[in-house]
């Protein structure tokens, strides 16, 4: 019985980590838009390439934040959560 419970915990942690990373779609689309606009801007005004690139990198890094939140949650679910949950389960059985 305990094996099945631990198996369910591990499987659900993996499923949760996988579905948390769906959030990667958002930053992907956002950063793609930002880079597209930056390319347009450089095409229009090639002399302002340095400024545009710096600002674009900055904006990309900030847009990435939501994706990184999802990543942190996924990493916690894979490396930290299973042990915690199994400990809680064993403690409640005792």
């Amino acid at each position: 019985m305990l094996e099945i419970a631990i198996g369910i915990i591990l499987g659900c942690c993996a499923l949760g980590a996988g579905s948390a990373m769906i959030a990667g779609i958002g930053p992907g689309i956002g950063e793609g838009n930002a880079v597209a606009k930056a390319c347009e801007a450089i095409g229009r005004q090639p002399e302002s390439k340095g400024d545009v690139t710096t600002t674009m990198l900055m904006g990309c890094a900030i847009a990435e934040t939501t994706g990184l939140y999802a990543l942190v949650i996924a990493i916690l679910l894979i490396f930290v959560a299973p042990q915690r949950f199994i400990d809680i389960l064993i403690n409640t059985i005792k």
């Binding site: 890094a61 900030i62 990435e64 934040t65 990184l68 939140y69 990543l71 942190v72 990493i75």
Partner: peptide
């Protein structure tokens, strides 16, 4: 929180 997670998430994801 977002400043800390942004920096650490980027470096950690690279090593993972």
């Amino acid at each position: 929180v977002s400043m800390a997670f942004r920096h650490y998430g980027n470096v950690l994801s690279g090593s993972v």
